[in-house]
């Protein structure tokens, strides 16, 4: 951002504000249906280990509500014990590379239910 003839480094959010621009918040939620019986928690733990093993350079954690965060990408699992499970992966456009990579890992490593 050039101000009064001087080149200044400023925080991106501040620079956008100066330009009168509001960033568009683009989010994705992709749902995978997984053919796996048993408690949802078991699948959560399996996904957690997949994330830990495949994405070693990312911070991966399980929250108290059972959701997994891989940096800023969120993964939640739900479903009754005897039913297939739903896995929701949510990320924003700025995490596109990570979200897309995680989707590919889950699709290749988990038993996906196809219509």
């Amino acid at each position: 951002l050039v101000m009064r003839g001087n080149l200044q480094l400023v925080d991106p959010d501040e620079a956008l504000r100066d330009l009168g621009i509001k960033e568009h918040n683009l989010r994705f939620t992709s749902t995978l249906c997984i053919d796996e019986a048993g408690p949802a928690q078991k699948l959560t733990e399996k996904i957690y280990m997949l994330c830990k093993n495949h994405m070693t350079d990312q911070q991966t954690q399980i929250g108290s509500d059972g959701s997994i965060s891989v940096s800023d990408v969120m993964v939640t699992t739900s479903g009754e014990d005897d039913d297939p499970k739903s896995v929701l992966v949510t990320w924003s456009h700025q995490d596109e590379e990570l979200g897309s990579m995680l989707m590919n890992i889950l699709r290749s490593e988990l038993p996906i239910v196809t219509d």
């Binding site: 918040n25 939620t29 749902t31």
Partner: peptide
């Protein structure tokens, strides 16, 4: 100021929608 795309696991369709958006 915001858009939320909710889809199944088909990445090829999601990418088409993302690029159009």
């Amino acid at each position: 100021g915001s858009t939320h795309i909710m889809c199944g696991g088909d990445e090829s369709v999601r990418v088409k929608i993302r690029d159009a958006l």
